[in-house]
Amino acid sequence: MRVGFLITCLVDLMRPSIGLAAVRLLEAAGCEVEVPMAQTCCGQPAYNSGDHATAAALARKLLEEFEHYDYVVTPSGSCGGMVRTHYADLFKDDPDLSWRYERLRPKVYELTDFLVRVLGWQDVPGRFDGTVTYHDACAGLRELGVKQQPRELLARTGATVTEMAQCEQCCGFGGTFAVKYGAISTAIADEKCDQIAATGAQAVVLGDLGCMLHLEGRMRRRGNVSTRVIHIAEILTGEV
């Protein structure tokens, strides 16, 4: 099974260790993983800002780079959601691109969704002796249906998962939203930080680096230096 790995801009530039951990998981699960080296952005920031011409150009580039793989897997619900949900809008006026995209769309998966629903993988290598809470990132939850998959995998590490109040509530990042509406974004993040702290968990685990950076930054500014913020890929490999 040939898997094209969509690393995402943030992971590539800010936390490449997440990408490496995700690739190791896929390989441990028996996949032949390839990382197209010319890949760039999925187009989500441009699309959310109304620049559909730029988003469409990036979407076409991604389609050309990934359409020949058996599956496309990404460690980000937001980028996966962009490809699975919004490319149809970008390609709607081009019959050829629309046809090619409809062949690609069902092959695009967020990492934990792929491991659980496609591979049925159970041999998680990582172990975590402690309590964690899980934040459901908006796009992964609402656009891809990622909910139980990461929790099932976390349980296999030995971690105790303690749910926070309103775990499905936005963290306030929202990509360009955090830039355009900083005060609102901060207020939303403060609510989420309070909910995380109330669980008493040693770590909050997420499947989207944007949310991770947003929450970790806010936690540290509020003086919380003890709660760890971990991507699901890294806890599943035991690299934490």
Rank of each mutant, 00 (worst) to 15 (best):
E67Q: 14
E67L: 12
E67R: 13
E67M: 13
E67I: 11
E67W: 07
H68F: 14
H68P: 08
Y69F: 15
Y69W: 10
Y69R: 05
Y69S: 06
Y69A: 04
Y69E: 06
D70C: 13
D70Y: 12
D70F: 11
Y71G: 05
Y71C: 08
Y71E: 05
Y71I: 09
Y71L: 10
Y71N: 07
V72C: 06
V72W: 00
V72L: 10
V72Y: 01
V73M: 09
T74K: 08
T74N: 11
T74P: 07
P75N: 10
P75A: 09
P75Q: 07
P75L: 08
P75G: 09
P75V: 07
S76L: 09
S76E: 09
S76D: 14
S76G: 11
S76Q: 08
G77K: 01
G77N: 07
S78A: 15
S78F: 05
S78K: 03
S78C: 11
S78T: 14
S78M: 09
C79R: 02
G80T: 08
G80H: 02
G81E: 03
G81Y: 01
G81H: 01
G81P: 00
M82Y: 04
M82C: 09
M82S: 05
M82T: 06
V83P: 00
V83W: 01
R84E: 04
R84S: 11
R84G: 04
R84T: 09
T85Y: 10
T85A: 14
T85M: 13
H86I: 08
H86P: 02
H86Y: 15
H86N: 13
Y87H: 03
Y87E: 00
A88D: 14
A88E: 15
A88M: 12
A88K: 13
A88N: 12
A88C: 12
D89I: 03
D89M: 07
D89A: 10
D89Y: 09
L90N: 00
L90T: 01
F91H: 02
F91Y: 03
F91E: 01
K92G: 00
K92D: 10
D93L: 07
D94N: 13
D94H: 10
D94V: 05
P95Q: 12
P95A: 11
D96K: 14
D96A: 15
D96G: 08
D96L: 14
L97H: 07
L97S: 06
